[in-house]
Amino acid sequence: MTATTQTPAKAAAPSPVLAFLKQPLVVALILIAALLILGEVLSPGFASAQQILRLLIVAALLGIVAAGQNLVILGGREGIDLSVGGVISLSAIIAGNVMNGADSAIVPAVLACMAAGAFIGLINGMGVTLLRIPPLVMTLGMLGVLQGLLVVVRNGIPSGFAAPGLSRFVTQPFLLGLPGIIWLWVAIGLLMAFMLTRTVYGHRIYAIGSNEQAAYMAGVPVRAMRISLFMLSGVFAAITGICLLGYSGSSFANVGEQYMLASIIAVVFGGTPLSGGKGGYTGTMAGALLLVILQGILTTVHIDESGRQMVFGATLLLLMLFYGRGRAMRG
């Protein structure tokens, strides 16, 4: 539990092998391999190249929004963004209407969605920092507003549909047989890893996440940092919304709703505790894959919807036991 990811803990670790195995990323990767084998046993063909590619695309959709969620959670002070689902749905609608099937309008559509996501994040961030509303409350309220906004937008204008270029980007092979969205996810992963470990900005995220007061004293612009994290979360959610439009062809009611808690669980499965200040995005990517493979197995197995949900819920609980549990009370 106390084996931190940054330092291999030479002094205290009793067994380096055990410490290695307890790292969240390693746990997630082992679980992913186990689940793939389980899926192949339960339904032959589950771990075929084509199926894995499909799972990767779905995981990329989740992984991208989870990047923003990860940043907000890393920033600490009970950081969480419940509004991502609303941003995703809104972004899918905006993208669909702006491009409306025309490749030439992809760039303006992407820019419009990212601007909308950043703006929503800006308001979330200002509410959290300037008014000091707890993030859970602020983003919950924002979710309600966005859901209302969706109804207005949907009644006012047709929902639009994806440009062929966008659909190709999400579903068709682009380089080395992998679609563009997977390369985008890889790029985001590399960028996030670089940012979190090598840049001042990244170090400041950990700083405000582990001790806001100390970070403030050390001259970190805590408020601006936190606002920027919420804006990034909005932007990442907007990108997922655009890609989701490309994946499904046209936007439909509340496509983003399922991503709200799934993105949080991906972060937790990736070894970033909700208390913030430690963890990283590499683990979250594995967490997103883990969640998607688990859902994939449950949809291939022939059981009722009720049984599927019960197994899914119980498995999530079981998996959580592998990750950083809270400390026991000691006197």
């Binding site: 669980i265 019960m310 899914f312 999530l316 609980l317 959580m320 036991l321 549990r325």
Partner: peptide
């Protein structure tokens, strides 16, 4: 000692 937000979400699915 699971985190309340994610744990009760999991039980809600169950």
């Amino acid at each position: 000692r699971l985190q309340a937000i994610v744990a009760t979400f999991a039980t809600s699915i169950f």
